[in-house]
Write a protein that binds this DNA or RNA. Structure first.
Lengths: 343, 343
DNA sequence: ACTTTATTCCAAAGCGCTTTGGTAATTAGC
DNA sequence: GCTAATTACCAAAGCGCTTTGGAATAAAGT
């Protein structure tokens, strides 16, 4: 059952049927109702391929990632993706995943997608400080939205959270509680979000005139193993150097830290304070941490939804100034933080 | 730059150019080389939309899941998906994700996708014992492949692992070690894989004439919380009823169990034996469990790759009998299992 | 009654590719 | 030297939709 069949059935031209279904004003309400009823009755669905060819729009958004960095193994990313798919589905878009690898490097995947008009727009995550994908996509004239920020000569649509502010707040809380030797367990500072967190952390220490001991600033994978191994090293330091508080980029890291702390017979919140950033993942929750974890929190799934909304808005109204959201991050006080113990 | 432009540039018809690029035999090697060089030079890429319309093939595989059961929050699924995307990318296919929800229920999403010819085939995971999606997709004439098995009147392509055999082996090991009171922490037995594991478990106990205590057979989410709460209950039982070994459907569950065991001052492998199924997830590894975990193992990412290969094979050669793989599962002996302690 | 303006519909072109059914040029067969 | 087979290419149709530029009808204005 295609447009032509349906129009013959109705005794109308396919033009009229098409316009009726797509809500154009040049068709009377009466025939519109008739057409829609007939379409429903016969289960008519326009062919996506034909529509694509005719309009140049694919109704598809793309996500590309390198094979080496398997984002699908990262719960932060999949949670983000989940929000994105949800929103896309609500807005009538599909999301396609493409993996770049080896010969088929990321740039080529973008080029191919663009030229083949497979997708209407791209969703980028985890930007580097100065991300090469931005100028590339702009050159290819492919619309995109960024989850995060990066330096760029021209404005582009993005959504980011206030990483700097979040980590400033968190570090500020710790200094207010009297902590001076604070460890920062960060992500890889090649990425912008990690850099921002580093900056916020340092600014907070600067406000109380506390020096930043570079020994206490660590970066790496944001998982439990990393948290554990760094904590083990740091808590072995002589007591003048040993951190009294940890600020982590993820709850997983905090999990690793907590394990070491407990293993040393210390108590979190009393002997060692602990704050982590909480992406509101389904299965990793700050509130059921033991003890409940003080955290900077921002839902990454919600970010996924918003990112898609921004991109679709941008696709539908290309002229308008693009959305550039920066979400504030809440600092939620729970029981993993306390005043520094006088030595 | 489209086919016509390119053909004009070459002084050939677009037919010839198309055939040259698509490897048809009716074109001389000389012109083929010439055409390919020109295509490369001018960065020509056939429009996916046009090709779709002309061939009826979209070059896209679909994955649908209900909003309620957010598979993207499940590392087992995302690891599987990761393998699938990898393989699809190697075979020149895209994978699109669609989320069914509320009004837009799963059946409608399938219908829509089929009718709109958005995808060439569907990938289904986690089948129920008798999964309604199978007859639906068959009725809609949409090719598919199943990760898992289900009852069906007609044959269809699938890949499954030998869950029954795996859990038989695992339970058999435990009975050989003298265990008779073995707890099974299973997934939801609405799903076929969980049912198969249940069957394997029971058969193993039957071979030594050990009764199955239904109190010790539990099912639920395959996460740490579930493992922990069930283990807590079971290990509180009076010693005649208390299990001496646990067989878990996931390492996460085993994590929960291990936590309880340690908390009670017991030692895994000596006081309580523990086996889990290991999907070879990147971040959850049986070999770095404490102690290293005896496990039935099978890479779920590899399964994702194979599933896509099967589907693509089926799409390209629809007539041929479809692949129906059942992979054996290795039982890897490590240190979490030991002989039952004489009471 | 005659023109103007809205309204409602339609014919036809086009999106860029694949594929069918050729024709012309070359080679082989006898 | 003539026919048959093969090779190398091409013209045109079609995939199913959107969209442009009318045409016919009905309503309104003078």
């Amino acid at each position: 059952m295609n447009l032509r069949d349906l129009s013959k059935l109705l005794g109308l031209s396919h033009t009229t049927v098409s316009r009726a279904l797509n809500g154009f004003p040049e068709v009377s309400e009466e025939t519109r109702v008739r057409v829609k009823a007939a379409a429903d009755l016969h289960g008519y669905r326009p062919s996506a391929a034909a529509r694509r060819l005719a309009t140049g729009q694919s109704g598809t958004l793309g996500v590309v990632f390198p094979r080496e960095r398997n984002l699908l193994g990262d719960l932060r990313f999949t949670e983000f993706l989940s929000g994105a798919v949800q929103q896309a589905s609500d807005l009538g878009y599909d999301i396609t995943l493409a993996m770049a690898s080896g010969t088929q490097n990321e740039e080529n995947v973008y080029r191919r997608s663009v030229r083949a008009a497979r997708v209407d727009g791209m969703i980028l995550s985890s930007p580097l400080l100065e991300d090469p994908r931005i100028p590339l996509l702009r050159k290819l004239n492919m619309p995109f939205v960024l989850h995060g920020r990066t330096v760029s000569s021209e404005p582009f649509p993005y959504l980011d959270i206030d990483n700097e502010g979040a980590f400033f707040q968190a570090a500020k809380l710790l200094t207010d509680l009297g902590h001076r030797r604070i460890a920062l367990l960060n992500g890889d500072t090649a990425f912008n979000f990690a850099r921002d967190r580093d900056v916020g952390f340092r600014k907070a220490l600067a406000t109380v005139g506390a020096p930043v001991d570079s020994l206490l600033v660590r970066e790496g994978y944001m998982n439990e193993e990393h948290g554990e191994s760094e904590a083990r090293q740091l808590l072995m330091l002589p007591s003048q150097q040993k951190p009294t508080a940890f600020l982590c980029s993820s709850i997983s890291q905090a999990d690793g830290v907590a394990r070491v702390v407990r293993h040393m017979g210390l108590e979190i919140g009393r002997d060692v304070s602990l704050i982590a950033h909480d992406d509101r993942l389904q299965d990793i929750r700050a509130e059921i941490f033991d003890p409940p974890l003080t955290a900077t929190q921002s839902s990454i799934a919600e970010a996924g939804r918003r990112v898609v909304a921004i991109l679709v808005q941008h696709l539908r109204h290309p002229g308008e100034p693009c959305a550039q959201d920066v979400w504030p991050v809440d600092l939620v006080l729970r029981e993993s933080t306390g005043p520094v113990k006088s030595q």
